[in-house]
Every structure is written in C-alpha cells, then in structure tokens.
Simulated assay, not measured.
Amino acid sequence: MLILRAHHLLCIQGYKGKGYSLHFTDNMDKVVNKLKDNTCIRVVTNTDDICVACPHNFKNGFCESDEKVFVFDSKVLNELKLIEGRTYLYKDILNNIRENLTYEKFLKICKSCYWFSYGYCFNKLKKH
C-alpha cells in the first residue's frame, strides 16, 4: 500500500522526472513505478510516501509548506469526493479523475501551484 497526499494524486499524473532535487525525483520515480491498477492507496492530508524525500519536509514529518498544500489536498478531496484516510484502488482513483476532473475543477485546485505554469499536469490529465 502507498500513502499519498490527496493533491499528489494529480501531481503524479503529470510527473515528468523533474523535481526539487535528485533525491526527490529518485523517490518520486519509485513511487510512480509502484503504481499499478490494483495498488492500494491510502489518501491523506499530511506527509506521505512522496514527501519523505522532499527538501521542504523536516525530519519530524512536518512540511514547511503544510498550510499551502493542505489547501490543495482539501480541494482535491472535495472536488473528487474522496475521503481522507480511506484506502482506494489506484484504478478507481484514475477512473474518478477521468470522470470528474473538469478543466474548471483543475484550475480551482491547482492554479496557485508552483508547477502549474509548466503545464505538465493538465496536459497529461486531459489525455486520460
């Protein structure tokens, strides 16, 4: 089972092997490569399996950007009708994204994200 922040469910869709550091991208590669249709994902709003290698994550598991990313998490939970702490099959999450994530919802969730201007996420999400 993987533990993922709600907003990371969208981030991994547009992931292109770029990130904050080599350590971060190595970890992100491992997480993304573990994702198969039958992978169980527990959705959270705190540090997760991706955050462990992020340079913004302190050793005690606290993210220096926690307030900001919590807003992203909350919007994803709300717009995709997901429940924090619940475990889902990855294929069900993908189906949910495909069926429910409109461009308007994507903007509402992600427009203030640092990575938004690169266009990675939406370009990948619209192909689903």
Rank of each mutant, 00 (worst) to 15 (best):
V44M: 04
G61Y: 03
N123T: 07
R5L: 01
H56E: 14
L89R: 15
F122C: 01
V52Y: 07
L94K: 15
N100V: 01
L35N: 14
E99Y: 02
L2D: 13
R5V: 00
T39M: 05
Y20K: 14
K126V: 09
I93Y: 10
D66N: 09
I41C: 10
L22S: 04
K59H: 11
H23Q: 09
T87R: 12
Y20F: 09
F72L: 13
I97W: 08
H8L: 05
G14D: 13
M28K: 07
V44H: 09
T39F: 04
N60C: 02
D29I: 06
H56F: 12
I97C: 06
I97A: 06
I3F: 06
I93V: 12
S21D: 02
H56M: 08
L82T: 04
D73E: 05
L94P: 10
N46P: 00
H8T: 11
H7W: 03
N57C: 11
K34A: 11
I12F: 03
S117V: 04
I93M: 05
T87S: 15
N96W: 02
C54V: 07
Y120R: 13
K59D: 03
G17E: 13
K59G: 04
C51H: 14
I93N: 02
K68Q: 15
L77K: 13
E64H: 06
C51E: 13
D29L: 07
K59A: 10
Y15K: 12
K108W: 14
D92H: 14
L107W: 02
Y88N: 09
N46L: 00
T47C: 10
N60Y: 01
F62K: 13
G14H: 08
N60G: 04
F58S: 12
W115F: 06
T102G: 11
E64I: 14
L35A: 09
I12T: 14
T25R: 12
L80E: 07
F62C: 00
V69N: 11
H23W: 00
V32W: 00
S117E: 09
V44K: 07
F24W: 03
D26S: 06
